[in-house]
Design a protein around this nucleic acid. Structure first.
Lengths: 207, 207
DNA sequence: ATTTTTTCTGGACAACTGTCCAAATTATTT
DNA sequence: AAATAATTTGGACAGTTGTCCAGAAAAAAT
């Protein structure tokens, strides 16, 4: 076995180890999200997470530097999935004039399926107003959501100038109706659907 | 002294006592807001509040039942002032076509003056997604803001149908630009002003 | 001036927090 | 099969949390 082959083998092993560790980290994050979405940032201790995840507290520190590291990792993971879901709608072969309804359907379905998880995003985003540890991840995610709406506007033949307003209208509506939905308003999701359609209806095609 | 006079006297005294206690409570709340706006809900302990207020921890419990009671009281107090400020714009003698700019000026000035305080509102609103203790005060305040925008639409001769969307657009923009302003973006407030004016410009007069 | 009431303090209390680590367990390599 | 490395545990640690209370201090009433 040549020297190069040896190095290759070692590198492969290191990659494998790292991949395994990465998978485990993802598993832990998934379970941690489960705890966080139930209790919220302020009321979730590492012991809560450990208990719900069925692991020991020490293990969380074996995979995550500290609580902040764990939480930002979780938020990134959750929101990456959300953005990817919406992205799929855009890159799919849906005709532009059917996109608004598809988007409305997707957002409403997401509230229905993952209401508890979504509130975690608004929780952390609010935390970021006080805690600089969270500003990076929050800005990252908000930028990616803004870019998403920007691409949506592009596909709809709308001017980019209104993309920020479009994002804020969608996000504001999402937050508001999520809040109502969580507080037991059974009509909130339908209302959100109408809200979105009305928002798209009021937009004029431009450059 | 007749019996009735005696009762009257006692009632006056009781009212006086209650008023004094109420004033002191307001003082304490004002100082507590000072602490909360610096640290945020999750990171503010009663000891932090006591220290910043220059009183003992026990005294906070003498005037407030528990931490939740203290915080909801503070939030109500803060936001009542904010709503009253905006209300003043509406009831003043500003011509309808000058109202949008006046509103934009008012909102921007409020961010400039009380950015740190405003983030507390978004913090507590997010908490309410998890903690039922806060839902009442949050719904109250959000309803009053919605009613405010509704009245604004009325004065502008706009249909009430768009009031919710109008509120969400204003609130979303407020939150977004507040966030940017707090993270050091010196152009955020000007951008917010343009955002508001653009929002009002895009609205069509209706019933 | 004395009693009664209200206000306020400082500290005690148990429960909880994030962090860390020595040792046990398991997996991997030799 | 033995040795090495990675993983996981359970508990120790010091500091913080909200709550409570006996009694001091101040104010009000008699």
């Amino acid at each position: 076995m040549t020297k190069l082959e040896k190095i290759d083998k070692l590198e492969t092993k290191a990659r494998k180890r790292s991949a395994k560790r990465s998978r485990r980290k993802d598993e832990l994050a998934l379970a941690a999200i489960d705890a966080l979405k139930q209790l919220g940032y302020a009321r979730t201790s590492l012991r809560d997470i450990a208990e719900i995840s069925g692991v020991s507290v020490g293990m969380l520190h074996y995979y995550f530097e500290d609580k902040t590291d764990l939480i930002t990792f979780c938020v990134r993971k959750y929101k990456a999935g959300f953005v990817a879901d919406l992205e799929a709608l855009l890159t799919g072969d849906i005709a532009p004039d059917a996109l608004p309804r598809a988007f409305a359907d997707g957002l409403c379905a997401s509230i229905r399926r993952e209401a508890e998880t979504h509130r975690l995003w608004y929780d952390i985003r609010a935390q970021a107003l006080f805690d600089a540890d969270f500003t990076d991840v929050v800005n990252e995610i908000e930028d990616s959501l803004l870019a998403l709406v920007s691409r949506l506007f592009q596909r709809l033949g709308l001017s980019q100038d209104g993309a920020l307003a479009g994002y804020l209208a969608l996000d504001g509506g999402f937050r508001y109706h999520l809040q109502r939905h969580l507080s037991g308003d059974g009509a909130a999701i339908d209302a959100f659907h109408r809200y979105i359609m009305a928002q798209f209806g009021g937009l004029n095609p431009q450059g």
